[in-house]
Structures are given as structure tokens and as C-alpha cells.
Amino acid sequence: MALSSEIFHSCTRPGPDGKPLPNSKPLLVYFITGNPGLIDYYETTLKRLFDTLRTKHGDTDLYVYGSSLPGFVVDKLIPSSPPYDLAQQIEHHTSQLLMMASKLSHERNGAIVPIVLIGHSIGTYMCLEIISRWQVKAAESRAPMEIVGGICLFPTVVDIAKSPTGRTVAPFLALPYSTVIAHYLVKIVFLLVPVFVLTLLVRLITGMESPAAKTTAQFLKSKHGVRQALYLAKHEMTTVAADKWTDSLWGKPPSLSPSTIFSDSTNSTFNARRDSPFRKRSSASTMPKPARTPSADTKLFFYWAKNDHWVADDTRDDLISTRGRLSTLISGGRRVSATSELYRPVMEVDEHGIPHAFPAKKTHSLIIGDKLAEYIDEISVPLRARNVMEG
């Protein structure tokens, strides 16, 4: 069975013409893989997430989408040849996200499409970069979408070369032609080994369960996979360094200027916000409502491993202390945050013993699927409340 290029789950309530109802509420969940960038690894997690959200949010047109990174599977839509660096991966996902959002918006008469980005490992860096670029775009030049949330699983967003594995592989990847040499060595070693035999070897050596082991075996036998993975890792070592993002990405209270508060109701920014499908439309009031800044609308969640070979403990702890939301433990084991902290990212350290490579085991994949649904609930509940209050 060939490697998949994408996974797509959808649940809509079509009208008489078979198209989505114009006033329906869409939600696009867009997933970006880690490296190796094969979406097959995440099939169990994305299916669990979709099934859970569909049960909880039956009144929402739900779309859960993820694709393999360019260079890992054959993609005729990409004109250039692999391998592709980190910048090219980001550009590809940005274009794909805009295309999907525009399509969903067009089906709903131009409504704004809420989007939750999810990334794993280096996919988290791509998510933050996409959100950061979206935030600085002028409202009138944006695509018809609103990035309402970003979820970072086992994030490698700063100083990846300082991680235990990064310190090991960075010197090798810095050598001239190292990625090409390794690529051909792997091809020679496994040239005559059938996929099913290689799958058994991967299971025996790594402890992966069968689906993940088979995906890994197909990756090792693929035309460009190994070279693409090493080439991308080489760029990760040099690109993912110090925290480069501004406070607006990490969250700050919305600032409302007089011009924003008293802007004319015909202003294009206000109309775009007012017509969001998560807001109840009403003609009872003609008073313009204050527009929110992107940083107030994009809620970030980070899920860290307790021990992660791709993230140094000091890196994780520093980011949690400087960028994470401060909370207080109260009776009943529940954590609450001060109002001034609500715009900062939620940062949680795993307590289930789940490793960085969570797709290797089905049990871990299911737990992560449930955790993603939990985070998306936290994103969607404020949206629904805002829908009622601003209607």
C-alpha cells in the first residue's frame, strides 16, 4: 500500500442543492506533521479527534485535514524537485491553507472561516510562523479566514540544536554532502529487503506497533524520503534557534484605539469581523463593535513531554516560565489564571509518559487525539460565547 499524501475528514449539513448551507458554521482543523513528514503516522490521532469533535459539535461543519510534507511522497502539484528546506515547507502549507480557507468561504458566500492549526515537532515551528505572518498582514489583504487557535505538540520551536539529539546529529548534518551520502547508503542497504520484512525489523528494533512500523519501512524504501528528512533536519538545526517572535504572537491583551472603537460601520475590517460565522448576525443594532487584534483571537496551547530527546529541559522550562500562562492550583485540583494571563499560551507538561514520537503506539495516539479535542473545546467555547454576546 502506497504512502498517503493527505488525510481529510469532513462532516457537513448540506442544503437542498448538496452544498453547505450559507449560514452554517465551519471549523477547519489543519494539521502539520513532524519530520519525517508522513501523514500516515497520524491517522489514529486525527480520526479520534474528528470523531470526538463531531460528537460534541454537531451544529458545526467540521473539517479535519492533514497532509504529508512535500518531498516525502510524490506530489505532482509541486513544480520543483525535492529536497525542500524549512522555508519552502512553510510556504507550501501557507498556500495550501489559504486555498482551503478560500474554498470553504466561497461555499458560504464569503464568510470568515475559523481555523485551528496543529503541529507536531517541527510542525509546531511552521504553525507559529504561519500565525505570526498572518497577524502582521493588513486586515483588508487577508484571506477570508481567522486563525483562532494554534496547538503545538512536543514543540521544537527554539534551540533545537541544543537538544540531546540535536547535539548529536548537528555536527554530522553540517558535513558536506552528508545528507546525500546517507540517503544512498540507506537505499543500498535496504534495496533487496521487502517492505514486510523491513516492517518486522523496525518493530523489533524500535518497539513501534505495526501501523507505524509499516509507515517507517515504506519511508526507508521511498524514493526521496531519507534525503528529504535529513535535508530538512539540517535546516532545522540552523533555523530553529533563539525565540524570534514578538509579544503579539505569544499573546497580550487587545488594545483598542479610539479609531477602532468609533470606526464607521462600513469599515471593511469591522464588516469582516462582524460577518464571522461564529457570530450571530443581527440587524437590531447598527453600532459598530470594537474589532479585536489578531493576538487576542489566536489562543496557543503547548503540550510538552516530560523527557524529550528533541527538546532540552532548560529550553522547555525557560519557555514555560517566560512565555507560558501563570496559573494557581485551587481546591479540587483545578488551575485558574488571572485575567491578565488569559491571553498567554497554555503550556502543559505530559503526565502519561508519552514520548516525542507519540504516533509509534496507538494508546498514545488516542490520548493525544483526546487532548487535542480538549484544547479545541477551550478555543471554541469562547467563540460561541462571543457569538451570543456580539450578535
Rank of each mutant, 00 (worst) to 15 (best):
V195E: 10
F196A: 15
V197F: 05
L198P: 05
L198K: 05
L198E: 00
L198M: 05
T199E: 09
T199W: 02
L200F: 13
L200I: 10
L201R: 06
V202W: 02
V202A: 03
R203T: 01
R203I: 05
L204F: 14
L204W: 15
L204T: 10
T206H: 06
G207S: 10
M208A: 10
M208P: 04
M208H: 12
E209T: 08
E209M: 03
S210R: 11
P211A: 05
P211Q: 06
A212R: 03
A212T: 08
A212M: 07
A213Q: 09
A213V: 08
K214L: 10
K214H: 04
T215D: 01
T215H: 02
A217M: 03
A217H: 00
Q218D: 02
Q218H: 13
F219K: 03
L220H: 00
L220R: 04
L220K: 00
L220E: 03
L220A: 02
L220T: 01
K221V: 00
K221R: 08
S222I: 02
K223S: 11
K223P: 06
H224G: 02
H224T: 06
G225D: 02
V226R: 00
R227M: 07
Q228P: 08
Q228D: 05
Q228C: 04
Q228W: 05
L230G: 02
L230K: 04
L230P: 05
A233P: 08
A233D: 03
A233E: 02
K234Q: 13
K234I: 04
K234M: 04
H235W: 13
H235E: 12
H235K: 11
T238H: 09
T239I: 03
T239E: 04
A241E: 07
A242V: 09
D243H: 06
K244I: 04
W245H: 11
W245V: 01
W245I: 03
W245S: 01
T246K: 14
D247R: 09
S248Y: 06
S248D: 15
W250I: 04
W250C: 07
W250N: 05
G251A: 08
G251C: 06
G251Y: 04
K252W: 03
P253V: 06
P253T: 05
P253S: 06
P253E: 06
P254S: 10
P254W: 01
S255W: 07
S255H: 11
L256C: 14
P258E: 14
P258C: 10
P258Y: 12
P258T: 13
S259T: 13
S259D: 10
S259H: 12
T260Q: 13
I261W: 07
S263C: 10
D264P: 07
D264M: 07
D264C: 06
S265I: 11
N267C: 13
S268Y: 09
T269H: 09
T269Q: 12
T269C: 09
T269K: 11
F270K: 05
N271P: 01
A272P: 01
A272R: 15
R273V: 12
D275T: 12
D275M: 13
D275L: 11
D275G: 15
S276T: 14
S276A: 15
P277N: 12
F278S: 02
R279T: 03
K280W: 08
K280S: 15
R281H: 14
R281M: 07
S282T: 15
S282I: 10
S283H: 11
A284F: 09
A284N: 08
